[in-house]
């Protein structure tokens, strides 16, 4: 039993980083007032370009940088459309997803003649060998650096939001942009920064799929994880620590499902995997509906800011 729990914790910590990172991207973008529907596409770009970078240089960290950059550039486009041109953020988010989906498939085929890339270098692992023999805590050893980065960033973002003036400005811009602008805060600068940060984070999340969880880009990536991340944003009530916990919870549910399916194949008849897979989304709907707690989106999320309208 202990071995089973340890295995579930271990794979949770392996599954979670992409979701946590993308969800944090969603949090920072939405808290500044820009809807984050393009997470899935940005993750896909990150996953692909991280593999490209890792293959080209043989260095996983160079790949990670390229993956992060790719997500950031996609987000810059999204920011430019939705802030400078006040475009419909939902449409441009969906467009990013569609372009990333088909565009990356085209690029993989053009560059590698296949739908997957070859195996590449992966992000190194943190051994923490001294914990190895302690029960439960032993599960913390041997994860990649990205796992620890993904666990550290939520704390950093929490401090940013609630302990710094910049963070308070971000929250103000997402709730009442007109009031923030009156106080001399540049709404568009804050939003540009936050949307680009969301792309960098989603790109990092995508990179975690292709150079940490796996050692190559595979064409099914990210297989809806961008949308799970969006669910985690809502389930976590648009806060960094909440979104991180929600992402960990969804990853744990997934790890539990896989663990149970391999150790108890007959369970499928009692509790089909489809129900387990749908669980994160159903729970998110229940939270949204107010059956479990209440989740409220930032007031100005999705509304372009117009200086001429107060």
């Amino acid at each position: 039993m202990l071995a089973f729990i340890e295995a579930v914790i271990r794979s949770t910590l392996d599954f979670a980083p992409p979701i946590i990172l993308a969800a944090l991207g969603g949090v920072i973008s939405e808290r500044s007032g820009v809807v984050a529907l393009g997470l899935e596409g940005m993750m896909r770009l990150g996953a692909f370009f991280a593999a490209v970078g890792a293959l080209a240089t043989g260095n996983a960290w160079a790949g990670l940088s390229l993956g992060i950059l790719a997500g950031g550039i996609a987000a810059l486009g999204h920011a430019w459309l939705s802030i400078r041109w006040r475009s419909d953020q939902i449409i441009s988010g969906v467009a990013i997803n569609l372009v990333a989906m088909a565009g990356v498939t085209f690029l993989v085929e053009a560059m590698y003649g296949n739908t997957d890339t070859a195996g590449s270098a992966t992000i190194g692992r943190v051994s923490l060998a001294f914990l190895k023999d302690i029960p439960i805590l032993g599960t913390l050893c041997g994860h990649t650096w990205l796992t620890w980065i993904a666990l550290a960033i939520p704390v950093a973002m929490h401090v940013l939001f609630y302990r710094t003036s910049l963070g308070l400005r971000i929250l103000a811009v997402g709730e009442k942009p007109a009031a923030a602008a009156t106080l001399g805060v540049s709404v568009s600068a804050i939003r540009y920064g936050c949307v680009i940060a969301s792309g960098l984070l989603a790109g990092m999340g995508g990179s975690a799929l292709s150079i940490a969880t796996l050692d190559r880009f595979s064409n099914h990536m990210p297989a809806g994880q961008g949308f799970i991340a969006l669910a985690a944003v809502i389930f976590g009530k648009w806060t960094p620590l909440g979104a991180c916990s929600a992402a960990l919870f969804f990853a744990a549910a997934n790890a539990l499902r896989i663990g149970l399916e391999s150790s108890l194949p007959s369970l499928h008849n009692v509790l089909p995997s489809g129900i387990m897979l749908a669980l994160p989304y159903v729970l998110t709907l229940l939270v949204l509906a107010g059956f479990i707690g209440r989740s409220r989106s930032p007031a100005a999320s999705g509304v372009p800011f117009d200086t001429e309208k107060r």
Binding site: I91, S92, A95, N97, L98, A102, F106
Partner: peptide
């Protein structure tokens, strides 16, 4: 899936 890229780009231009 290449035609889907055309479709996605067209939507991106509509977004702009």
């Amino acid at each position: 899936t290449f035609p889907e890229l055309i479709q996605g780009l067209a939507l991106l231009f509509i977004a702009g």
